[in-house]
C-alpha cells in the first residue's frame, strides 16, 4: 500500500512530528508551508528563505519499525536562474538503506532558455517530470518517479539544498 504525504500535512511551527506513519524532523528551524502556483510544499523557517529548505537546513523522515520503498517524491520552487535572479538550484536527497548504506543523490534544475521543455537532471533512477514550469508565474515543481530504483529497504530520507 502506497502512502502519500503532502506538504499541507505538516503543521507550521513544529520540528518533530509523526506524519503519515513516518517520523519527520526539521532542523535547525521548524516546518513552514509555502504555496506557489497552487502547489503547497513544506519548507523550514530561518535560513536564506524563511519558508524553504535552504543550504544547511534538513528535512528528514525516518521509519523505526519497517523499511520502505519510494515510488515518488515531488519538490517545489526549485528554479533555474533568471526568474528570481537566482542560480540553477540543487536539491540533495540522502537515503539510508539497510543493504546499501547511505546513498546521496542530486536534483538540479538545468536552465532552458525557451520552455517547454523544462528540464532537470536527477542523479538517481527513474524519471523526472515537470508539473509546474520554472517561470516567474510557475511553481518550478518536479516529480521524480521511482527515484531510488529497486532499493526497497530504506529507513530514512533527508532533503537539503546545495549551492547552485
Amino acid at each position: 500500500t502506497v502512502i502519500t504525504i503532502n506538504g499541507i500535512d505538516f503543521p507550521n511551527g513544529l520540528n518533530n512530528q509523526t506524519i503519515g506513519g513516518l517520523s519527520w524532523t526539521s532542523s535547525p528551524g521548524n516546518f513552514q508551508q509555502k504555496t506557489v502556483a497552487g502547489y503547497t510544499g513544506v519548507g523550514i523557517t530561518g535560513g536564506r528563505t524563511g519558508d524553504e529548505i535552504d543550504i544547511e537546513e534538513f528535512l528528514t523522515a525516518t521509519s523505526a519499525s519497517f523499511p520502505f520503498w519510494v515510488p515518488s517524491f515531488t519538490l517545489g520552487v526549485l528554479f533555474d536562474g533568471p526568474e528570481f535572479d537566482d542560480v540553477q538550484e540543487v536539491a540533495q536527497v540522502t537515503i539510508v538503506s539497510l543493504s546499501q548504506g547511505t546513498k546521496v543523490f542530486k536534483l538540479t534544475n538545468t536552465y532552458d532558455a525557451i520552455i517547454p521543455p523544462d528540464t532537470a537532471s536527477w542523479t538517481g533512477f527513474g524519471t523526472v517530470t515537470n508539473l509546474s514550469p520554472s517561470t516567474g508565474a510557475g511553481g518550478a515543481v518536479w516529480k521524480i518517479t521511482n527515484p531510488f530504483g529497486s532499493i526497497n529497504d530504506i529507513t530514512s530520507i533527508e532533503f537539503t539544498a546545495l549551492t547552485g
Binding site: 502512502i3 529548505i53 526497497n152
Partner: peptide, 14 residues
Amino acid sequence: SDFTLVQLQYEPVP
C-alpha cells in the same frame, strides 16, 4: 538553492 517538499510517497516493505 532552496526548495520545498510538495509530496513524498512511500510503501512499507514487510
